[in-house]
Write a protein that binds this DNA or RNA. Structure first.
Length: 775
DNA sequence: CAGTGAGCGAGCTTCCGCTTGACTT
């Protein structure tokens, strides 16, 4: 083999191989091939922070293949991305594959086009060890922060918690926003608008002033009853609107959320599919750049479809902090395809990308904005009517901005001095708005603004803070709120009370008690790490390392020198109360103190102290309760459960609330209590019925068992029939799936045995680190 | 969420950034 080219992504490898011809074999590293060992700290502090790298098990096979390919190649071309991580990947490849300097070349290209790649091949350079060292500094710092901070949380708050340079700041943003919302009290005001008529044509006008009270609003409406309305002046001015740049990961996530209702994860999965199918360019990017070739194609498409007056080639420059711009912006690979095959999501996301890309190279929209002020004869206030006429649609032809005034209607022709007829004037009560909770997409935007996280980590970070129980996607619908509406029609003012929904948390990111407590703790004791500018500041240091002006170990030594003593200090602090603990008062029955805090299994109430003679009693908070708001009464009420409802056939019937919600316990079995009943009030009769229903269901559950296979049952489960096996004396059952197309009721003992053996022999898939890992 | 409802206590948990798997029970 003559040439081996190694890139990071297999989809990229496939494309490049086509450009390069038969003398080149192109393989992929699938990202990093080596990292710090997963479990241990893996940094030798005493040996100048020497990292202990390993090839993860799942990469061993790949590395073997790369190594043998490299051995038989005359020249190896390391073509990983041109950024810090890419340079490190090249270096790790060089080391691990034991490459030789004389036949190794490092090349880079920002766009996957034949000329760009040919040019790269003609301009190889050595591996930039300074850039590699900047990556090592980044990697080592993140490990130090994460692996020293997290254990502090285990000791002081709860096991298995996590903290890190990125996730902890993300949680902080959400917690602080929540505190702003809690501290906010909405102020009512009245907003007035009018439906008017000019020579038989309707127009809408608003009053720029707001009224603070209903009395003031009423007074104004009443004064309007006798008033004349006259156009005072009409102001027409041209307005230019320009398109937005093409998508990056972050803006695509935001726009797909707003316009298509996609979660950040959905967007990334869909984009990944489009990328693998060769329909769009790489989807994890912070670059606004379009290749010359793409610009040319887009220009041609615009010209041929819409005419050259719609074309305006534009180059965009990124403003985002820490952008590394190793790729292009996200764009269609072939702009002439305005749609693609695929499922619904793929088609919609593609179309969005196509529109935004096209628009980014199109002419400004020319708009004529008309503004008319309307005098009220009885007072100084003036109504204002606004209208827009699009003189030339430009980029609006393919992409409409979501927010903003686009779409305002036209006004009928108006002239100064013209009299208008008021049809109806209404004053509607509104309320000042608290700052909005973050959605996944707006959190990503904020993180990008702060330079925290990278395109490849936005979606995973959002998953992490949710799987750690720091943050949940809100489910509360909000509450109805009454508001007043006053209306002036036919000379009479009438008032109505209306209701609207407010405070909905649906789909918004809401901090949990654990999230709040962890955030309070970290911001108090580690303010430097939690500072919104921490990442930006160390990025400057990493840049210096990359430029060769600073040794990476020196930088890490400095950081560790100030960070680690703080860890020791906080660990040794003896705290009288647990972090986040709130003392509610005393239990009137026992006279012992009552407090709420984060316990091993989450937020809980505790009566008494561990040092007391009698052991403390515990009760978990309900899902809708919070450490910060629960009262003593509510807390004590939690100890009313589990409650003995009575006896049935000589056995106790007990109601309680567990990890999976309200339940009835009877004769060693548990039955969930449905939503329309409560454990506090459920009657013995109701409970008996629930138990009977469950027993009946249980009876239907068993499809088959076999005398010769003890402990094995064929059962009817939530997802259909399955085989359950409980080894003798074991606590847990092991389940096996029944192959598709097999009738469960006709299974024989031999069939079952065979299914089980087959699945036992099948290789287990590597454990996924997901939310399921929790107990 | 293929069963379930803490507390014993040994041993475990944890970071960020590159990449895609093989699954839909």
């Amino acid at each position: 083999m003559k040439n081996l080219v190694i890139v990071e992504s297999p989809a990229k490898a496939k494309t490049i191989e086509k450009f390069l011809g038969p003398d080149f074999k192109v393989m992929s590293s699938y990202g990093h091939i080596r990292d710090l060992r997963k479990k241990d700290f893996s940094i030798d502090i005493d040996a100048d922070f020497t990292p202990d790298y390993e090839i993860p098990a799942e990469k061993k096979d790949l590395v073997r293949q790369l190594k043998s390919a490299a051995k038989s190649a005359e020249t190896v071309w390391l073509a990983s991305d041109e950024d810090r991580e890419g340079e490190a990947i090249a270096w790790h490849l060089y080391e691990v594959l034991e490459l030789k300097p004389e036949n190794t070349r490092r090349i880079v290209f920002h766009e996957i086009t034949k000329p760009a790649i040919m040019k790269a091949i003609e301009n190889p350079r050595p591996i930039d060890i300074n850039l590699v060292n900047a990556q090592q500094a980044r990697r080592v710092l993140d490990r130090i922060v994460g692996f020293e901070l997290s254990p502090v949380l285990w000791r002081k708050i709860r096991p298995s918690l996590s903290a890190g340079r990125v996730q902890s700041v993300a949680v902080r943003l959400i917690c602080e926003r929540e505190k702003e919302i809690e501290a906010f009290s909405p102020e009512p005001y009245f907003r007035v608008n009018a439906m008017m008529e000019a020579d038989g044509r309707a127009l809408k006008a608003d009053l720029p002033e707001r009224f603070r009270t209903e009395e003031e609003a009423l007074g104004f409406l009443e004064s309007c009853a006798q008033a004349d309305f006259t156009v005072a002046d009409v102001n027409v001015k041209p307005l230019k609107r320009s398109p937005q740049p093409p998508y990056t990961t972050s803006t695509l996530q935001q726009d797909a959320h707003r316009r298509l209702g996609f979660s950040v994860n959905q967007t990334m999965m869909t984009a990944q599919k489009l990328y693998e199918d060769g329909k769009i360019t790489y989807m994890r990017t912070d670059s606004l750049n379009l290749s010359e070739l793409a610009m040319k194609d887009i220009a041609e498409t615009i010209t041929s479809r819409m005419g050259k007056e719609y074309l305006k080639p534009r180059h965009y420059h990124t403003r985002s902090k820490g952008a590394q711009e190793a790729h292009e912006a996200i764009r269609p690979t072939y702009i002439s395809n305005s749609t693609v095959d695929g499922d619904d999501r793929e088609r919609r996301l593609y179309e969005l990308i196509w529109r935004r890309t096209m628009a980014s190279q199109m002419a400004d929209a020319q708009i004529e904005k008309t503004q008319a002020d309307i005098e009220v004869s009885t007072g100084a206030e003036r109504f204002r009517a606004e209208g827009e006429v699009v003189k030339f649609d430009g980029f609006l032809r393919v992409y409409r901005p979501e927010d903003g005034e686009a779409g305002q209607s036209m006004l009928p022709p108006l002239a100064a001095g013209q009299r208008l007829e008021a049809q109806e004037i209404t004053a509607v009560q509104r309320f000042t708005l608290a700052p909005p909770r973050f959605t996944e997409a707006t959190l990503v935007k904020k993180m990008e603004d702060l330079g925290i996280g990278r395109p490849s980590t936005y979606a995973p970070t959002i998953s992490t803070i949710q799987s750690r129980d720091y943050v949940v996607r809100g489910e509360k619908e909000g509450e109805p709120r009454l508001y007043r509406m006053l209306s002036l029609k036919d000379g009479k003012v009438s008032g109505t009370a209306l209701s609207e929904n407010t405070g909905s948390e649906k789909g918004k990111l809401v901090p949990t008690d654990v999230g709040m407590v962890v955030n309070e703790f970290l911001t108090r004791y580690f303010p430097d790490i939690l500072d919104f500018n921490f990442t930006a500041r160390i990025e400057e240091k990493f840049d210096e390392i990359a430029e060769g002006g600073l040794g990476w170990q020196k930088e890490i030594t400095d950081f560790y020198g100030s960070f680690h003593p703080e860890i020791d200090r906080i660990n040794s602090l003896r705290m009288e109360h647990k972090v986040g603990e709130r003392v509610l008062g005393t239990d009137p029955k026992s006279g012992r103190p009552v407090s709420v805090k984060i316990c091993r299994f989450g937020p809980a109430v505790q009566i008494g102290e561990a040092t007391d003679e009698e052991k403390p009693r515990f009760a978990s908070l309900h899902k809708d309760q919070s450490i910060s708001t629960i009262t003593l009464e509510e807390a004590l009420k939690l100890f009313d459960l589990p409650r003995k409802i009575g006896q049935h056939e000589g056995k106790d019937m007990v109601a309680g609330v567990g990890r999976f919600g309200p339940y009835i316990r009877y004769d060693g079995m548990f039955v969930s209590i449905p939503k329309d009943m409560a454990p506090e009030t459920i009657s013995l009769d109701e409970a008996v019925k629930l138990v009977a229903d469950k027993r009946e269901k249980e009876a239907q559950k068993l499809i088959k068992e076999f005398a010769e296979l003890p402990g094995i049952q064929v059962l009817n489960g939530r997802f259909g029939p399955y085989i359950a096996f409980k080894p003798d004396g074991a606590k847990k059952t092991v389940n096996y799936k029944i192959p598709k197309g097999t009738e469960a009721s006709s299974l024989t003992a031999a069939d079952v045995k065979e299914i089980m053996e087959k699945q036992d022999a099948a290789p287990k898939k590597p454990a996924r680190r997901a939310a399921k890992a929790k107990k």
